[in-house]
Amino acid sequence: MEARSPSRWGAQEWAAVAMFLAVLAVPWATDDLLVQSIVNRVLIGAMAALSVFIMLRMDLLSFATPAFMALGGYAAVLLTMHGVTEVLLIVPASFLVPALVALPLGALVLRLRGVYFVLVTFVLTEILQLVLFMTPRLTGGADGLAGFPAPTLLGTELSDARSVLALAAAMALLAAVITAALTAHFRQHFAAIEENEVLAESLGLVVWRYKAMGFVVAAGIAGMAGFSLGNMLLTVHPTSFGAQQAVDTIVYAIIGGRGSILGPIAGASLLVTVSDFLGNQGQYAQGLFGLLLILVTLVARGGIAGAVAALARRLRAPRAAAGPAAAAPEAARGGA
């Protein structure tokens, strides 16, 4: 009678990790700089969208992703400027600094729900951006930080295009593993909070503990994305971490599908690539995002991942009909 073990990874978690494992080969598979650049930006977008996804699992829409990206990015870059270039140190730092900030911050903001949480995270991003502009001695202010030393791996410099991409892929893989582990392990808890937080709490679930855990991990993953962005652009600048970026990452997660870890990955892959192909008309990508956002909200609440899962279910249906009715797959939950 007991439901299956809560921490077991499903096909989607394995697929997500396998995809990023495969991407690890891309730096060696192609020398095409355009392809490498797109893949790199997809990886960064996917990491940021995973951060949004974690919060969406608990029905919390966060605009604070760019703020945490900035914390991670600036922390890592400042470390390299102070002589610490070892990636085995700066990558963890880019995760830990925003995560540590998120811990006390979470105690304050996670009491808010719904639109109030949205607004408070929006305000956080605006505040951090202003602070970056106003602290030129630490963060370079409006100039940002540039010309920092390349990161190293056990003494080897990672400065060529191939190593930059490989590092981005490795970080994205790490982000996917962490996200999969967290959301699979607490699947039931997060789902309970998403569906009915009040009931979960009244049955004894310590809701704030799970929200805090999600918030801290989401901040850490955003921080890695921030470092990855700085490493690709060779600069960290306040304008990379504003409300616009918050909207982009939310769009990736929602259009890709909030019900499955594959959603944000699919959303970032598709939308980053599309905006790249729009090239000079890059501004028009925003309009496309807007249309897709409206469309997904109205007709495909599970986003791309949800739609694909529904299609797969329909194709499989004739075969499955003979067997016992399957429990509703996770991806179908996108709406709510």
Binding site: G287, L293, I294, T297
Partner: peptide, 8 residues
């Protein structure tokens, strides 16, 4: 999402 989409 609907109003954000409209804005874009």
């Amino acid at each position: 999402m609907l109003t954000l989409g409209l804005y874009l």
